[in-house]
């Protein structure tokens, strides 16, 4: 009788393991997918934020400036692929010819290489300069001729 019970136990245990293994891998995948979709949404929102700032500075005319603090635009977290990061590839590209901000999102968590998204901006006269004491990172200023983005070139690149 003992042999009989052991064989059944093995069969039941086998089935349980199969079902549990399936559930674990599906749950892990769903966690990663949910996280990835959330990060992609946040990455897009960052692009929208930057685009809105550029458009506002352009619309408000000469002398107007906006400061985006590290609490608003944290490039370290933006670039990080850890749980709190967004996996955005830096530098962010401001393309003046197509008048877009181009964001590339690393999606290795879900087996994809990269996803790209473009957000439209109004002005074409945009340039980048290194941050100064007067205009720290990340400040956007209208000098009358150009919208100047004060940011390190490893973070934002203007084409």
């Amino acid at each position: 009788m003992r042999g009989q019970i052991s064989l059944e136990a093995i069969m039941v245990l086998g089935l349980t393991i199969i079902i549990l293994t399936s559930l674990v891998s599906i749950n892990l995948e769903r966690l990663n997918t949910a996280r990835e979709i959330g990060e992609a949404g946040e990455a897009r929102i960052i692009g929208e934020l930057l685009a809105t700032a550029i458009n506002n500075v352009y619309a408000n005319g000469e002398g107007f400036s906006l400061y985006l603090s590290s609490a608003t635009l944290n490039f370290t977290l933006l670039n990080s692929t850890t749980i709190e990061g967004l996996g955005v590839q830096l530098p962010l590209i401001v393309d003046t010819s197509s008048r877009t901000i181009n964001i590339t999102k690393n999606s290795s968590k879900t087996g994809m290489e990269v996803w790209n998204v473009s957000i439209s901006i109004i002005p074409a006269n945009i340039t980048r300069e290194d941050p100064t004491i007067l205009y720290p990172q990340t400040t956007i200023r209208n000098n009358g001729s150009f919208v100047i983005i004060y940011a390190n070139q490893t973070y934002i690149r203007v084409l």
Partner: peptide, 25 residues
Amino acid sequence: NKATTMARDGGIYALSLLNMGYTTS
């Protein structure tokens, strides 16, 4: 069941990003 579930998840993931305006290489 697992194959169907995973295919559904893959479809939802890709459509979510496409609907957010993302493009792919």
